[in-house]
Write a protein that binds this DNA or RNA. Structure first.
Lengths: 209, 209
DNA sequence: GTCTATATACTGATAGAC
DNA sequence: GTCTATCAGTATATAGAC
């Protein structure tokens, strides 16, 4: 997903060139400024090239943003799947949920401009670009639905909870952190623990009667 | 907040005219399409006037969007304050939280294009516009922090919960519903109950040992 | 693979008629 | 209070030189 050719020596000081470099820069700018405010001229300038040169690598702005959106889902999907499958064999429902929440949040806040760009601009791009991203999104959503369904079948999740709605609520809550998270005030790691605490057990003090 | 003059008879069929009408239309378009994609020409066309005419009512695009943002916070703030103060005298922590959550969510999903536009475009507008909206936002945030602090002081909220972080998590989760809520699949009313259930008590089944 | 130059359309904003 | 006409700036995209 990241630009690999840029690590070679004897290159332009910018560091970002070629298709991968343009894509890296575009993802960062989209995350920072949104879709409508980022022009091809801005992307080109940040990558150290001229606007016209972009069309050697991509056919249109939509093609760039579509590539960013797809990569964004793939990164967070792979991160979540790996985190869950890395757990010990007999891991309980709570451990599984905590690992999945942590992986999703860290992908957004610590790891990937692509994943955070996806969350921030998906609602702003043209309908055709959204449609192109749907298959990739659906696969990630299915991963969560399967995980939650398994946990509910084991009896660890309240029976009255609707899986689809819970997934939308949980992912939405985690994604919303992009609007206010400040690494100076706490780590994504610690924040993921708080989210797990709240979603798993709630915020009300329990009576010990 | 809504256009009042438009209810008079013998007017242009569009229904939206004058400063209030322009603002109503702008709020709806911003909510639907985001900040960058909505031009003054689009706003004017939807309001049934020409682009140049907008400048009789507003000095700039930023002035329009700033007015939309402020109104958006004021609507949801007033809605939440009223809902809480309308509760019976001795209402418990759970009833208060449920009423506040319900009011916030219904303002976003059922009532106001201004409130939903605020949530959707705040992260996309120029820094100067965000700054102008800060005072209004802070007042609403303080309302929530006071409410949550009172409940925690009463011992109904877990002591280890950080108030500011909880407020960010809760409001963020509720605001995120704008990205996926579909009135055909359920009411905002019912959804607010589910959010309260999850945040108050969590999703894990409790052992009855 | 990147450059310059350019075509075409749209942007926010202004001036003056009615 | 809305209109028409227009300005300067910027948008995506293309063509051809190097």
């Amino acid at each position: 997903m990241a630009n690999t050719t840029a690590s070679k020596l004897n290159e332009i000081p910018r560091g970002a060139v070629g298709r991968g470099g343009v894509l890296d820069v575009a993802a960062r700018l989209f995350r920072e400024q949104g879709y409508g405010s980022v022009s091809l001229r801005k992307i080109a300038a940040a990558a150290g090239i001229k606007a016209g040169s972009i069309y050697y690598h991509f056919g249109s702005k939509d093609e760039i943003v579509a590539a960013v959106l797809d990569a964004g889902i793939q990164v967070v999907h792979e991160s979540m799947r790996q985190a869950v499958s890395a757990l010990p064999e007999g891991a309980g429902a709570e451990a599984i949920l905590r690992a999945a929440i942590r992986a999703h949040l860290r992908a957004l806040l610590d790891v990937s401009d692509y994943s955070s760009a996806n969350v921030r601009i998906f609602g702003q791009v043209p309908q055709s670009v959204r449609d192109a991203n749907l298959h990739t999104r659906r696969a990630y959503e299915a991963e969560w639905d399967n995980l939650l369904s398994r946990i509910q079948a084991d009896g660890a999740l309240k029976r009255e909870v609707d899986i689809r709605r819970l997934r939308l609520m949980l992912i939405g809550a985690l994604n919303a952190t992009l609007e206010w998270f400040d690494p100076h005030r706490g780590s994504a790691e610690a924040l993921s623990r708080t989210y797990a605490d709240v979603f798993l057990n709630g915020i009300l003090e329990r009576q010990e009667t």
